[in-house]
Every structure is written in structure tokens, then in C-alpha cells.
Design a protein around this nucleic acid. Sequence first.
DNA 1: TTCGCTATACCGACCGGACGGTTGACAAAC
DNA 2: GTTTGTCAACCGTCCGGTCGGTATAGCGAA
Lengths: 191, 191
Amino acid sequence: MLDRPPPPDAPTRILDAAERIVQARGVTALTLEAAAREAGVSKGGLLYHFASKEALLAGMLNRLADGIAAEFEAVLDAQPPHPARTTRAILAWTFDDPHMVCEQHQRAAAVFLAAFHHDPALLDPIRRVFARIRDRLRQDALPPGHALAIMAAGDGLFMGRIFGMYTMDAEELAAMRRALERLAQPEAGSP
Amino acid sequence: MLDRPPPPDAPTRILDAAERIVQARGVTALTLEAAAREAGVSKGGLLYHFASKEALLAGMLNRLADGIAAEFEAVLDAQPPHPARTTRAILAWTFDDPHMVCEQHQRAAAVFLAAFHHDPALLDPIRRVFARIRDRLRQDALPPGHALAIMAAGDGLFMGRIFGMYTMDAEELAAMRRALERLAQPEAGSP
DNA sequence: TTCGCTATACCGACCGGACGGTTGACAAAC
DNA sequence: GTTTGTCAACCGTCCGGTCGGTATAGCGAA
């Protein structure tokens, strides 16, 4: 029998609550009081664990960065060890279903924007995660620029989705993927 | 002799001031009082022209959307009437110098985020501009998905720049451009 | 066992300041 | 004399952060 997971500790509950608020009601709705109430603690209780709003946001961002890194690692591990493995992981990460629809990513985006709104420097943990991915991307044996172009397209798609800029049907999405996959062919660069 | 342009009217001055504030000191610094002071009017004076903060933001967004549309139109007109003209305009828009470094785009990004922060629906004018560009992109005689992939990559690059996620040198940028230009070849899709 | 002492975790009233918006007045233009 | 544009004072609200206090648990000494 599976005993259900133990109830999370207070800091975790608070971070969860803060994420939920940002996702559901926007950046402006994230106040210390609201987060405390949603987490089932008092404002004083929240401030005991996170000494300021900035500390709360930093906590959210650190957890988010860890989550992104772990998620990408999982996608990468699932890729066959072909050449351009990292690049293919980016493609899978961008286009494979769970990632594109997952409500968790809406939440991530909301947290990201909330942090940027408060202080752009809070994004540093995320920056490090993506810098690391980019470094590995550069080591894929592809013509220079191809992997980066694929990553940029993935980012653009993601951002367009966050901001509600894109409305593409599945067919267009699939066509985009095929186009980018051509760039992921190791021999694609030599005319 | 060129007589200098006449001093802008109050609404224009106010919009300019609001943009300057958002760009220089972030979204949080954009208060009615600050915008009024920066524009050289009183708070009451500002509220005479923009009845609420939301109205002010809507004014900023509308102007921004018009600016973006005009800018893209200019880039498009400068393209030779080759096939895939719109797609090539996107490439030029993304990679050609003035666009990439222009301080005006930092300002645009700041306004964009400020509006999204207050109410995502304010982005509708911008959405319409990009939807129109996307429609034209679809009419470029390219294999399906290629033009969209190029646009997504441009957006990703732009967003990465806004959020400080990318640090690419000129060489990598040029390589990316070459990679994307391969996708803009009309015959590129048929193996 | 029990008495003090301390550390941990949490509470909620309160303060100071900032912000969006209102109001009433006023002066120039028409 | 009405309209247009502008002003300064003011109000109510909300929010981040402080602070004094409480409950619980652990622990060494008497």
C-alpha cells in the first residue's frame, strides 16, 4: 500500500501557495498576506520563514530553476545517444506534448514574470540553468548556429505562448518542428 | 533651414515620460505622480488626459503597436521583391544592426511588460500587429513551417535579450542568421 | 519528576508610507 | 460665460514590514 506523501513543511507550503496565487490571479495579487492565507499560516508565520517579499521571490525562483534543470535533464536522458543529442532534447522539450500543455509551465512563466517585475537580478538562477544548456548545445557536432537557432525558436514559441501571441494549430506546429529538425541534421550545413 | 519640430502636446509628453520611467526605473516606478512629474504636469493634469492608470497604459500600448507596425513596414519596403520577401524582412528586422541595439526596443519591451503586468488584455493591439505579420508570412511561398520557425527564432532572440538570458557574440549571431537563411530558401524544403 | 531556561515556530495588531483617484478652484481661450 | 486645461490638496485603501506576545518542545540541574 502506498502511504500518501507526508504533508509538506511550511516553507514548501508557502512557496506552493505563492505560485498558485501568481498563476491564478497575476503578479499584483501576490501579497504577503494573500500568500500567507493561501498557505494556511499568518503573515507573521510567513515572514518567519521568508524574511521579506524579496526573500520569498528568491525562494520561488530557486525552486523554479531547480525544477527546470531537472526537467531538461529528464528529457535529455530520454534521448537516444545519437549525435546532436542535446539539440534533439531541446526539440523534444519544445514540441512534445506534456511540455507544451502542462499547467506547470504556465505557473513557471508566471513566477518568472513576477520575479522579473520585482527585480531582474532574481532571474540569475534561471540564467545559469540556460547558460549551462547553451554550453552543452555548443558541443553538439552541428554547423555553428544551427543548435542556437533551434533553441531560440523554442524560446520564441514558449514566450509567444506565455504572452498569448501565438495561436498555431497542431499542423503548423508539426511543420515548424520538421523545419527545425532539418537544422538538427549533422550534415545539414555542408552545401 | 530646418525649424525644429513643435513641442509635443501634453498627451504625447505624458506618454513619453511614462515610457522613460518604465525603461529607466522599472515597472514599479510607473506611478501617476511620477509620470506627471516627469512630464512636467501635475497629477491632476495627467488625469485630465488619461482618466486612469489603465487608460494611460492603453495609450502607451496603442502607440507602441503603431510604432512596431510602422517599423516593420519600413523594413519590408526596404526588401527587394524577391520570393519570401516577408520572411526576409523578418530576418532583417531581427538581425540588422539598428534593430538589435536600438534603445527604443528596450523601451518597447519595458512598456510591453508593464502592460502585461497590469492586464494582459492590454496587449491586444500588439497581438493584432503580429497576427497580421504572421498572416503575411504564411503567404510567402516557402515549405510550411519554415517561415514560422524563423519568426519564432527571432522572437526568442528578442525575448532572450529582453530578459537578459542570451549573451551571444557577433559570430554566433551571424551563424544563427546563416542557419535561418537556409530555411528561407524557397527550394529548401524538397530533399 | 519537576522546575527553570532557551530555541523554534507562529500569531495578529499595528505603523508608515505610497498610490490611485476625487474635488474644488482657477485662469486663459473662445 | 462656458469650455478647456491645469493645479494642489486631500482621501481611502492597501501593502510591506515591525513588534510584542504565545504555544510547544527539548534539556540540564536540583
